[in-house]
Simulated assay, not measured.
Amino acid sequence: MECCPTCGSMLLYELPHMGRPARFHCPRCPYVCHFESGVKIKRKERLVRKPIEPVLSQDDLKNAPKAEVTCPKCGHGLAAYKTMQTRSADEPETILYACLEKNCRHTWRE
């Protein structure tokens, strides 16, 4: 995405037409930027994957209320839960569960 250096509007791409090369033009002011057919990469930026933070941390598991819910992964009958309003106010709350089995720690929601 390119922006007009004069007014800051987003430049529109115009295809080559009747011998005129392809160009970017500003819909608000008379700015025009012609370019060659090749694409030039201005900068390369390496993407870094951010670590995913758990919804229920270890501190939350210690203090969270417990419910007798069966874990879908291991079948353990006790899980900690937390409620969050993830959608609009007229929708029901989302219940996030975390299995309390030490080897499992599976999380799911309802």
Rank of each mutant, 00 (worst) to 15 (best):
M1E: 09
E2G: 05
C3R: 14
C3F: 15
P5M: 02
T6I: 13
T6D: 15
C7K: 04
G8A: 10
S9D: 11
M10S: 12
L12I: 06
Y13V: 06
L15D: 13
L15C: 04
P16G: 09
G19W: 09
R20V: 08
P21K: 12
P21L: 05
P21I: 07
A22K: 09
A22W: 00
A22G: 09
H25V: 10
H25C: 07
C26Y: 02
C26I: 06
C26L: 05
P27Q: 10
V32S: 02
V32D: 01
V32L: 05
C33S: 14
C33H: 15
C33F: 11
H34M: 09
F35N: 09
F35P: 00
F35K: 09
S37D: 13
S37Q: 14
G38C: 09
K42S: 08
R43M: 12
R43F: 08
R43K: 15
K44L: 15
R46W: 00
L47A: 14
L47T: 13
V48D: 12
R49G: 03
E53L: 12
P54G: 02
P54L: 02
V55A: 09
L56F: 05
L61I: 13
L61R: 12
K62A: 10
N63R: 14
A64E: 07
A64P: 04
P65F: 02
P65Y: 10
P65A: 04
K66G: 00
A67G: 14
E68V: 02
V69M: 11
T70E: 14
P72T: 04
K73I: 06
C74T: 03
G75N: 08
H76N: 12
G77K: 14
L78R: 11
A79E: 03
K82E: 10
Q85P: 00
Q85G: 01
T86W: 10
L96K: 01
L96R: 04
C99G: 01
E101D: 11
K102H: 04
N103L: 13
N103S: 15
C104Y: 08
C104R: 03
R105A: 09
T107N: 07
T107Y: 01
T107W: 01
T107V: 10
W108C: 02
R109I: 08
E110L: 01
E110I: 03
